[in-house]
């Protein structure tokens, strides 16, 4: 079984004065997260969907699932204060709907609505072979490292650098093991699940992402998405 775990527990703190988390903002009269979930809902490689969202929005999300006729959503769980807790709770949700050790969990940000079916397919195929997958794009800008935020401490070799996206995809047993290993521990500098898997000493393979699979984090990102949609509707450019 292939389960999509959709993370929709962000606070939208980088969205200025928005009164709702970014994943609930309406784009083309539909919440952003619904656009994202629909891609998984109609994908033949996905069997079930689990959504991890803010505790206060669980009931609203359940209502939206009915309203938008999402047929594969099997569980909505309350996330937590950090990404790590939200994923962990989502994995518990996967367990409750019957996830087995060899099942594949495709973890994706609800704020990346331009995820393509090709990326989902590549994630699942690569995960079947290697057990752990990260979606990345090659860094095109030079990345500068600064330890004091004032001066450059290093300029890493660009060809070795990639920008991480989601999905991140794992065999269920592996990602559970990775989370159990750090459960109730404060693990510094962990921003995603691949880091936890690396801490176990397990290799994580790369799948090519897409620049369009960007995350809607700020108003600038939202403006970019809306601009792309307007261009798509233009009769004459």
């Amino acid at each position: 079984m292939n389960i999509a775990l959709i993370l929709a527990a962000g606070t939208g703190s980088r969205m200025g004065n928005a009164d709702k988390p970014k994943q609930f903002l309406l784009v083309q009269n539909k919440p952003l997260m619904i656009h994202t979930i629909e891609v998984f809902d109609v994908n033949p490689n996905i069997d079930k969907i689990v959504i991890s969202t803010n505790e206060e929005y669980v009931e609203e999300v359940k209502l939206m699932i009915k309203q938008y006729d999402l047929t594969k959503v099997a569980k909505v769980v309350a996330g937590g204060a950090t990404r790590q807790i939200s994923v962990y709770n989502g994995l518990q949700g996967c367990k409750e709907i019957g996830a087995k050790d060899d099942d594949i969990i495709v973890i994706h940000d609800s704020a990346r609505p331009l995820i393509s079916p090709r990326i989902i397919k590549d994630n699942i195929e690569c995960c079947k072979a290697y057990g752990a997958v990260d979606t990345v794009i090659k860094a095109t800008d030079t990345i500068v490292k600064s330890e004091d935020s004032e001066t450059i401490s290093d300029i890493p070799v660009r060809k070795e650098l990639y920008q991480g996206q989601t999905p991140q995809t794992f065999k269920f047993s592996l990602i559970m093991q990775a989370h159990d290993a750090v459960k109730n521990k404060e693990v510094p500098n962990v921003t995603d699940d691949t880091k936890l898997v690396l801490l176990l000493g397990h290799k994580v393979h790369l799948v090519e992402g897409d620049k369009l699979n960007f995350k809607i984090t700020t108003f600038d990102d939202l403006m970019m998405l809306k601009a792309l949609l307007k261009i798509g509707k233009a009769e004459v450019l």
Binding site: Q28, K30, E38, L114, L212, L225, L228, L229, I231, G232
Partner: peptide, 8 residues
């Protein structure tokens, strides 16, 4: 390439 909205 263009972005298209799919609404059932």
């Amino acid at each position: 390439e263009f972005i298209d909205t799919v609404d059932l």
